[in-house]
Write a protein that binds this DNA or RNA. Sequence first.
DNA 1: ATTTGATTACGAAACGATTCGTAGATCATT
DNA 2: AATGATCTACGAATCGTTTCGTAATCAAAT
Lengths: 125, 125
Amino acid sequence: MKQYIKPTESELEILNILWASGPSTVRAVHEQLARTKDTGYTTTLKLMQIMLDKKLLSRDGTGKTHIYTALVNREQAQGQMLQKMIETMFNGSAMKMVMQALGNHKASKAELDMIREYLDQKTKS
Amino acid sequence: MKQYIKPTESELEILNILWASGPSTVRAVHEQLARTKDTGYTTTLKLMQIMLDKKLLSRDGTGKTHIYTALVNREQAQGQMLQKMIETMFNGSAMKMVMQALGNHKASKAELDMIREYLDQKTKS
DNA sequence: ATTTGATTACGAAACGATTCGTAGATCATT
DNA sequence: AATGATCTACGAATCGTTTCGTAATCAAAT
């Protein structure tokens, strides 16, 4: 049975760091986190321990300092969260969401071109 | 000062109903909610009262049964939530998100065409 | 071996969201 | 005006998340 990935806000912040940096110690994660967030070290530690419990992370406990690794795939998590948003906010229509995103965000011409190219490629196959 | 809209999961469900149905009584909202969710009437009531408190809703209290109205605009809420997702999950790139959405969702050819048309229009202006 | 510094483990407080029971208010019917 | 049905108000319990203090553990340096 496939589990749905539903990280909390804080968990997502940690996942993002691990996705970007790869397997890391608590301290490394905490230092990144502390750049944008005022939080204590043991808070980060506890969060990561809970995420271990929830199978969002794994860890290598050889030696004193443990090394944590994200167990969930970035693309998969992104996809699931997007899918959910599309369903609950955009009536299941990816198109509506895309348009809203592009409309709001005032994408650059280069970005628009890239999307167009991507669409072309997708239509062909 | 502009407030950020950060409805919870449950609040979003209620907002969606009000956006779709327009101003409604608690009972009307609850009946829709109860179709997909097993919840009590007073729970819905309490939630809507809290949302009133948070200024997510307004209400007309003339007469016995109150009529609630969404105070937040649908498009605005969607936009903000998308923006946040883009920032936290897609490194600020709307394009990345759009591609991920399209890639995952397997949009129909018709949908793709509509998006392309939209892009063209957007490029022109 | 002892001290020092950093790490992990753990419990508990604080907080917000959610749920629901119960009481009180209101209205229509009789 | 009493009954019954429906609604609102409110407090409290529960639950999950987040936070942090403190103790235990470990490793390196003295």
